[in-house]
Design a protein around this nucleic acid. Structure first.
Length: 260
DNA sequence: AGTACGATGGCCT
DNA sequence: GGCCATCGTACTC
């Protein structure tokens, strides 16, 4: 799988799919040729940091017949525990968000608009913070994912958006609460190759409160990023106190690699 | 039991 | 860009 596309590849680079490519963990079920599964300590940190560092990792899900599906994570959002009105945890624990308060590395799946979205829980048990995975660059199980999405081509509609990603991977409320660190059929793994890409940060998509916080992270130029793929400087706003930082500081662009 | 509301996406102009 | 189908959840009466 040394020919697996880097997470900043464009669509044409992604067109190859073969049965041989569908072996993200190897036949023995041992170490992944892509790298190793992220340990619990990875998720134990702040959602900001986890969201940023999940970019370029591989999200994988195994179907009941053993076929692996998934791809590179190219877009994430952090949802904080306290002082974040946009976070589901802001109202405290309920039946819906219970798994968001579980141990780090737990999968939190919620339903919205008759669809599903998936998160990785961060920090300590009881904290209530998580990272929403908004988009993948599809790599494994393309046929399977196309079938579930009702598409006959591999284009950005396949996994560009949180609910599209869940439908492609067949993630539903049934999977809520499983452990990404231990589950046999779900995993996030560190890629074997050190990719280099630019990370753009901006405001989160689809929320009405806390819109000024830059808690969305995505890979610059990636075709599968949903929503706004370019962050633009806001025009100067009157009524802004003099102490407000310069407008450009709302947008940060930097080069990182997914390795720590 | 009734209602209002989304961390959305598909389709339309 | 706008419009709205859809349904689980939380909240009100």
């Amino acid at each position: 799988m040394s020919d697996a596309p880097p997470p900043n590849a464009q669509l044409n680079d992604n067109a190859h799919t073969s049965s041989a490519a569908n072996t993200p963990f190897g036949a023995s079920g041992g170490a992944s040729p892509l790298g190793r599964r992220l340990p619990r300590t990875f998720y134990q940190r702040s959602p900001r940091r986890v969201a940023r560092e999940l970019l370029g990792m591989a999200l994988l899900r195994r179907d009941c017949d053993g076929v692996w599906c998934g791809g590179w994570i190219v877009e994430t959002e952090a949802y904080l525990a306290r002082g974040d009105a946009a976070s589901h945890s802001a109202i405290g624990p309920t039946a819906r968000n219970a798994s968001m308060f579980a141990q780090p590395g737990t999968l939190y799946v919620y339903s919205i608009h008759a669809k599903y979205c998936l998160n990785a829980v961060t920090q300590q048990s009881g904290t209530g913070s998580a990272v929403l995975i908004r988009a993948l660059q599809p790599v494994w199980g393309l046929d399977r994912m196309q079938q579930r999405r009702g598409l006959n081509t591999v284009d950005r509609r396949l996994t560009s958006g949180p609910a599209r990603t869940c439908q492609a991977l067949d993630v539903t409320k049934k999977n809520d609460g499983l452990d990404l660190v231990e589950d046999a059929n779900f995993a996030i793994v560190r890629p074997r190759l050190p990719f280099s890409f630019k990370i753009i940060t901006g405001s989160r998509i689809g929320i009405s409160s806390a819109v000024d916080q830059r808690l969305r992270f995505f890979i610059d130029g990636n075709l599968f990023v949903s929503g706004r793929r370019r962050e633009h400087s806001k025009p100067a706003v009157d009524r802004l106190p003099c102490a407000e930082p310069p407008v450009q500081s709302r947008i940060s662009i930097d080069s990182t690699t997914p390795s720590d």
